[in-house]
Write a protein that binds this DNA or RNA. Sequence first.
RNA 1: GCCCUCGUAGCUCAGGGGAUAGAGCAGUGGCCUCCGGAGCCAUGAGCGCAGGUUCGAAUCCUGCCGAGGGCGCCA
Length: 534
Amino acid sequence: MITEVLAQALADSFRDLHIEIAATDVQMERPAAREHGDWSSNVALVMSKRLERNPRELATELAKIVESQGLNVIKEIEVAGPGFINFYLSPQWLHDVLIDVLTQGEHNYARPTVGDGASINLEFVSANPTGPLHAGGGRWGAYGDSLARIFRRCGYRTFTEYYVNDRGIQTELFGASLVARRDGGELPEDGYAGEYVAEWAREMPDEAEPVAWGQERALKDVQDSLASMNVTFDHWASEKALVESGAMEEVVDLLRDSGWVDDRDGATWLRTSEFGDEKDRVLIKSDGEPTYFVPDIAYHNQKFDRGELVIDVLGADHHGYVPRMAAAMKMLGHPSDRYEAIIGQNVTLVRNGEEIKLSKRTGTMVEVSELIEAVGPDVARFAYLLQSIDTRQTIDIDVLSSEANENPVYYVQYAHARIAAVSREATNRGISRRPVDAMDVTVLQHERELEILRCLSTLPEIVEFAARDRAPHRVATWIRELAAAFHGFYHDCPVLRSDVAAEIQQARLWLVETARIGFAIGLDLLGITAPEEM
RNA sequence: GCCCUCGUAGCUCAGGGGAUAGAGCAGUGGCCUCCGGAGCCAUGAGCGCAGGUUCGAAUCCUGCCGAGGGCGCCA
């Protein structure tokens, strides 16, 4: 990596000043403005205080020494602003990027090793099987699935799960609601009122056991919806199976052994407040029934068998639940850095310019399946993934549908389709790529050509940061930049036109191939298709 | 009242303590003589407010204002 070369050069020049500094402590950054060079270091600013030196003077001295080292990638060094050292490089470093991308290929380029085989258990969506998945739930699906792809690319062994709450009060209420709709009876208090309940009730066979049938019907619906947006799971964990296995009793015993369980007021409590929770939580109610918290603890405890790091993706409406679960995990002996909850902000659904409040009473909702039907999985996923999980998202199904053609995902996919079109046209014209080592990369000097390589050079760190920050939207943002770079290139730099010199044509064909690799990697991480034509 | 997240261009959003804060959409004006115009180029406008830390703050800290969410022996 070029940054390592430059950082080392700076570290070496410190040595000339009899100051020891590790190359890894020298920060290299891309200047925001192109006029400030290809790479820049703030090391003089950072060190000036410790050395009690004027930062500009220090920078000037360092620059002079680096210059005398005579690295041939460096075209020019300048000291700018308060003491930045700016490097202007020959395009050679970008030519190296091209070779890197081609030799490593789609499979190996931008495959950071930070995961190093560590395992992650990632749970997301886990909506109750009491109805179709609403469009808000789609956000967790897109996010979790993409995050899993990013983790895997970074070398984490990743296991994804959906926790199915297929027992308990909610499923019973749902079953009762189905019966009420079928028989024309009154809906139970807090029952499910959505239109789908009546629809499904008509489907329900007379001999079916309503609770089990309803729960299966809903789960099937959720699974189909997620599959239609290309979201799959390694494991659908059944709460019912968990409870029937005796896991609740086991985990309560474990907690009792840990000494954090109290019996008071006729109930059984877990002293979670001693681990940062606001208050203690009831495990077993005074009527003898366990709260929902118990199977949840048992489930989370078991997930540690399927991953060293257990991550939950939760909606903001569940964030208050995190401290108690974190407390329980600590009590069960799982170190606090092994359990992580990612809190995503909720989705606001809008239709006809009006916010749709999810309501059990009125039963209004926008279903994921409806969204996918209207705009397709790629538009939906890109819309979900373009935005940071920390910000509230508004999904306006009308806007998404009507503006589908201007959707940013097409901008990206169109670039990929153009690449495929170049290949097809090359075949038509009888033009083929000669071996990489027969190519003269140095003919790539056009700013549009270099911009593609500059963009590709950032992909490895983009992937790594996306994993570290649990932020798939970084990949989405990046791939738009690559698309912009490619469209610009495509506009200004003909590849197959007859007036293009043979060696330039060869180099551009290979450049197009690197862009294809970039799109393939990025789109795969987002779980979006890479079309050959549109 | 306490806790969590967020407040950036007319709208939807990016922005790992760095220099002149960027995209898309919407607006305006340009660009099809051979690879796909779902494209390219140009153009206007912005960090909620007030302090603090720092050589340097949209970014970190505090307070205020605003938005959403959470504070059950519900799930």
